[in-house]
Design a binder for these strands. Sequence first.
DNA 1: ATGGCGGCAATGTGCCGA
Length: 258
Amino acid sequence: MKIATFNVNGINGRLPVLLRWLAEAAPDIVCLQELKTPAAKFPAAALADAGYQAVCLGQPRWNGVAILSRAGTIHETQRGLPHDPDPTQSRYLEAAIGGVIIAALYLPNGNPRPGPRFDYKLTWFEALIARAQFLMNSDAPVVLAGDFNVMPTDRDVYKPERWIEDALFAPEVRAAFARLIAQGWTDALRHVHPDATLYTFWDYLRDAYARDAGLRIDHLLLSPALVARLSAAGVDRHVRGWDKASDHAPTWIVLDDA
DNA sequence: ATGGCGGCAATGTGCCGA
């Protein structure tokens, strides 16, 4: 089973790129972020034509997450993050598919730091940690997938010294990510590629992609039972080079059958 | 320090992203 996460940065403007990548990569389950569209304008028919059923949590203009599946029926288990400090922001959707719980999340950016946006990021992170503990306690196989807006370590940033004060790399944020991991989650990409330089985002500005000035902020975290089933992981970074690309690249794992 | 790019809702331009 191939499971991917992709921040599309506008699902309607990105639809040709998304469909092209779905046809090429053939993932079974996909978590999408930054739909930037209300549910009424979610392109469900085009995705169904491509073979994917979908659940979506939309919102006009900003945020928005969805889960696509061609692997089995989507049984939604949670819509919105419990205790989200601002429930008007659509950032969390969770479903059971083929015996695995899939959580699609879009953690707040948090800039500028300090400020109310950064405070919201930290509060949202705490609510995520609480939900993740609940899922961990359930002993179900779980994948937490999405745009975490956190580079976990120095090797996940092209120039770490320039990002210390940024909300994506600040000590408090990395500490929160480390506490989440300490519940027992495995960072799948890093597990498969312990020493590789892996990025999932390149800014539109300053030729970031051409310079490979990237960040690794899109992650798939596995509950303990899934680690033994993890057989491959990667970033489809070439998709970032396509015309009308998102600033993120699709990131994926393959799990062997149970 | 600033602004560069890009999507969206909207037609002016501002907000947001990371």
